[in-house]
Design a protein around this nucleic acid. Sequence first.
DNA 1: CCAACTGTAACTGATATTATTACAGTAACC
DNA 2: GGTTACTGTAATAATATCAGTTACAGTTGG
Lengths: 141, 141
Amino acid sequence: MNSEFVIAVHSLVLLAHRPDGMASSEEIASNVCTNPVRVRKVMSCLRKNGFVDTREGSGGGYKLSREPDDVTLADVYRALAAGSLAPTWCSGDPEMDCVVASNMADVMNSVFCGADRQLEMYFETITIGQMLSRINAKARA
Amino acid sequence: MNSEFVIAVHSLVLLAHRPDGMASSEEIASNVCTNPVRVRKVMSCLRKNGFVDTREGSGGGYKLSREPDDVTLADVYRALAAGSLAPTWCSGDPEMDCVVASNMADVMNSVFCGADRQLEMYFETITIGQMLSRINAKARA
DNA sequence: CCAACTGTAACTGATATTATTACAGTAACC
DNA sequence: GGTTACTGTAATAATATCAGTTACAGTTGG
């Protein structure tokens, strides 16, 4: 899995956890344990997909623009990690003379497409709000 | 996804396709388009899990030791790619003072465990025999 | 014994991932 | 209107992961 997915989910959960729903890239970065540039890149993508609003300039930052319970991990997955299941490496070669070697890539690809859909369905069942609840539950325990 | 999974599936399908169910690491490697050492490493793992028999020495190689329809992709997945879904990179830090940062890794991990199970269930529905059928169907088309 | 294999380890090179630096653009605030 | 605190993005550097290669010991059939 793409680690940008992890950063995105963490960031959204953090925003949901903040009383005012806001944070700057620097605050998020230190919470996630990465650098602000990476956070901004991810957040920029989340903005384009309508999950957050950004305010540039002094006192700016990111703000959740949807209810935490209305955003599923599948939404996030689609936005920045769809299709990441299939390995970059590809076996066989369409030009080869062997039935197996020449058709494996296609068949393997369809298998991974199915897997991707399956994964998406699973992520559909988990919202940012639920993630936050789970975290709070863990903290109480 | 681990690309060794791809090599393993391709190799098993190739063996299933062979009339005598046999091939050497060199034959498999050229069919898969990789090098024999990598193939041997993967096959060694498949042997330890009872999917193939190997014969060392002259005229040796690998041979399917189960019916192609009795081996699912989930079996292969468990053997050499289980848990590969979760990214190596991990957000947050258990030592931090923030509820979100300190518990995110745990919660994220449980999410990926669930995803892994989901994926495994999907792979359970596909056998090596079916992969070969799909390939043959594509070849006829 | 020789030829043809597997099993592994060690090394090298290629590729992908993450962090850093740099800087232009924007908005609040004095 | 200038200064400060932000985002957006590109370019580069550092690091980690992955794949290919070489080397060699062990096994087996002829």
